[in-house]
Design a protein around this nucleic acid. Structure first.
Lengths: 168, 168
DNA sequence: AAAGCTAATTTTATATTATTACATTCATTG
DNA sequence: CAATGAATGTAATAATATAAAATTAGCTTT
């Protein structure tokens, strides 16, 4: 029998996460320079922790994980870093989990459809163009002026379905 | 100058709220009988409080509002009632606000698009059929099996836009 | 270098939201 | 009417998030 941790370790053979992270961090660094904002050590650290994987991560988990490196870290330390990263569009806040996840859509449409797997906790972002168009029509019909969207879907991702099937 | 409360009082001339509430409560009572579940006094009370208006309301606000009637009420009292009402599809939980709102779509597709006004705090539910269809396609493409959806849009509703325009 | 400015951080405290656990009571129904 | 499961009462605490004031670090202006 697998431990929960093992069960939730769900690598995709074709996914090179090292590359994925370095791209995300690189883009973040570049964007901050371009925008004249500071990706300070704390912010950089938090962003790296978030990018350790593609799973939704909680603020206090980040706090625990940053403490070995930054003993003085307090909730406010984390929340301020998260606020900054969200403002800069470098991470998403997942409202329905009170959690956070790295965003790899910087520069494009930032508000995407989030598919959140209950089993492995990984989050897939999808631009979902048709959905967004249908939403726009809906807003027009309602006369509603949008400021922000939370489009969060919970279920089981394709990788976990595959794993589950194999087990039977 | 208006007080915030006055500013946020935003009645629609064509909306008969008394009728609206009695319909919602009536439907709830009926559904609970049909389903063989108990709409106990506490649950009924909480449902009525939620239906006082169409605004998103917080759990601890409900707690404060129920105390005059039920002095013994504690957080668990409210959260248990809310859990029941959500299970029965009689209210929605608004994930991005940690708040709740009455649901008038019982019997139909329960998961609807929620348009949440930042100014008056009212929530409009919309079936948004085209959006839902586009979402289904997206899930199929992703191979994702959906358990639940949170589709929450924040912005300014058509009534508030009208009011704001008049003020200029 | 000193003074002044701003953004960022530290620190402490506290507010807000939600759950757990266990005792008790209530409502059926066998 | 006793047994059972559902609902409630109660206390404590966990989990999430923010506020506010003091301090620091890095600039820039003189």
């Amino acid at each position: 029998m697998n431990t929960p941790a093992e069960k939730n370790h769900n690598p995709s053979p074709e996914h090179n996460h090292e590359k994925c992270v370095s791209k995300a961090i690189g883009t973040a660094e570049h964007l901050c320079v371009v925008r004249g904002v500071q990706l300070t050590p704390i912010r950089h650290q938090v962003l790296e922790l978030i990018w350790e994987n593609h799973k939704a991560v909680k603020a206090y988990e980040l706090l625990d994980r940053i403490k070995p490196v930054m003993d003085a870290a307090k909730p406010a330390t984390i929340y301020r870093a998260l606020d900054f990263l969200i403002e800069q569009g470098l991470i998403h806040r997942i409202e329905s989990l009170n959690a956070f996840v790295g965003c790899n859509c910087s520069g494009h449409q930032h508000e995407q459809l989030l598919l959140i797997c209950k089993q492995c906790n990984e989050v897939e972002e999808r631009p979902a163009t048709e959905v967004m168009q249908a939403l726009s029509l809906e807003f027009d019909q309602a006369g509603f002026v949008v400021h922000s969207k939370a489009l969060e879907i919970h279920g089981i991702c394709v990788k976990c379905i595959g794993l589950n099937d194999k087990q039977n």
